[in-house]
Amino acid sequence: MKKVYEIRFSGSGGQGIITAGMVLGEAASVFDGKYVVQTQSYGPEARGGACKTELMIADERVSYPKPELADILLVMSQASYDKYIDEVKEDAWVIVDSSTVKYKPARGVFPVPITKLAEEVVGNKVVANVVAMGVLSSLTNIVSYEALERSLLNRIPRGTEEMNKKALKLGKTLEFKDNV
């Protein structure tokens, strides 16, 4: 039985949502040998406002390239929470940036103050997306931590390696639960 993970990351422009999708996609496909398709919002829908990237990660070739209902949803803005919270499967996991989003507690909805932690612990909210990736890697085994870190370090500006490593590790080691 083929299992495809359907993943959606959403937030506002500038939060590094698309970058997170590209890093996860490369890590899972090139380094972990999975089949991955990644798509993203493009054009007018990508400018300002909400932005979105979607991934299909599987052990077999993926047919239809876009998620219908997500297995994993990451929301980093109120607008994206409101838009996508219902487009998930029954047993989906939702990671909510509780420092930016008002959410309804539910089973499988994990609130993590991602942006706040990035700012306060790592010292820069620009790495909130990296903290989120760390959270994702502790929640699931769809991608290895090593692959994620390697792909991440290849994509970031030189001189920011330590900050990014720290952010990823922070996300990975955080304690969180769905409060239900």
């Binding site: 996609g25 496909s29 990644q38 993203q40 493009y42 390239p65």
Partner: peptide
């Protein structure tokens, strides 16, 4: 088409 042009795969 635009979909294959912008989607990423290995």
């Amino acid at each position: 088409d635009e979909t294959v042009a912008h989607m990423r795969e290995k």
